[in-house]
């Protein structure tokens, strides 16, 4: 008999009174997979993660986490998962060491090597009171408390919040190691470039719904034809060029028909300082999906 998927959702709905936060989410996450949840604030990412760990009761649909329904089996689900809340609260009156002893004391198994590696990488002053920690240090502490338990599924709501770039890289390496150990990770993040390098798969959540796979594929196909060009002073592109947008540093994002290299070769040699093509960025995809959504509603981009 095959093992149940780590997460299986069918028609998951969550409403708070008249406000529907999740609208019929269908989603499956295989064991050992890393799923990235992407979406603007208020899209429903945190509610989705809370539902998986049984903190929030669903209004409709079916939820299976590690083969269990978290509503009646919330305690067992929490024994086999580790959840990092988005609004990370840590006990300010405790020292870092006391907080970790408290947080990890509830779990059946702790991976001591992973805990020590995280602590070494994060360089936390464990004997100082948490109230003296910066926001980033508190986040690091919460991350150690979340990643050190040896469980099957890690649910991380914006784990890179308040972390600087170097720490985010360290965290990414730690999550890659978790993935290599066969653990399943579902995480949300607003650092899209890093998420793209970590996740096996991305799901875009917007206004409580997952963006359909076909729409995502269309957007990706469209992005592949994009080229980014930084023009020299005084230079201009041919009038027929479709400029998608101008970025803050003056770089133009151009939509081309067919192979972008052919289009680049057709430009005069002294037109541009730099050119990039052939790779779509997650930020672009995100923007296209959101713009498309606004266009669908008849609003301005």
């Amino acid at each position: 008999m095959s093992e149940a998927p780590a997460v299986a959702l069918r028609g998951l709905t969550k409403a708070y009174g008249d406000r529907t936060v999740l609208r019929g989410i269908d989603l499956q996450v295989a064991r050992g997979e890393v799923l990235g949840l992407v979406g603007p604030n208020g899209a429903g990412k945190s509610t989705l993660l809370r539902t998986l760990v049984g903190l929030v009761a669903r209004s409709g649909g079916d939820v299976s986490v590690l083969g269990m329904d978290p509503a009646p089996n919330s305690l067992e689900v929490r024994h086999r998962t580790s959840y990092l809340p988005g609004e990370t609260g840590v006990y300010l009156q405790m020292t870092g060491a006391q907080f970790l002893a408290f947080a990890l004391g509830f779990h059946r198994r702790i991976d001591a090597a992973r805990r020590d590696a995280l602590l070494a990488g994060f360089e936390l002053p464990l004997h100082a009171r948490v109230r003296s920690y910066s926001a980033g240090m508190k986040q690091k502490l919460a991350l150690v408390a979340t990643l050190a338990p040896d469980v099957d599924l890690y649910l991380l709501d914006e784990p890179d919040r308040a972390l600087d770039a170097s720490v985010r890289l360290f965290l990414r390496d730690a999550l890659v190691a978790l993935r290599a150990a066969g653990k399943t990770i579902v995480l949300s993040s607003h650092h899209l470039a890093e998420l793209e390098t970590l996740a096996d798969r991305l799901e875009f959540l917007h206004d409580g719904s997952l963006i359909a796979a076909q729409r995502l594929a269309d957007a990706r196909a469209r992005l592949r034809r994009w080229t980014r060009v930084r023009l020299r002073a005084g230079a201009a592109l041919p009038p027929s060029t479709h400029v998608e947008r101008r970025e803050r540093d003056g770089t133009l994002v151009v939509e081309t028909e067919g192979d972008p290299l052919v289009w680049i070769r057709s430009l005069p040699a002294d037109t541009f300082d730099a050119v990039e093509c052939g790779t779509s960025r997650l930020e672009d995809l995100y923007r296209v999906l959101l713009y498309a959504d606004r266009d669908d509603r008849g609003g301005a981009p």
Partner: peptide
């Protein structure tokens, strides 16, 4: 107080009834 300090979600997410 746990709600005000945003620690309640952390506490409720621990594997304890």
């Amino acid at each position: 107080r746990e709600r005000e300090a945003q620690t309640l979600e952390f506490l409720l997410a621990r594997p304890v009834s």
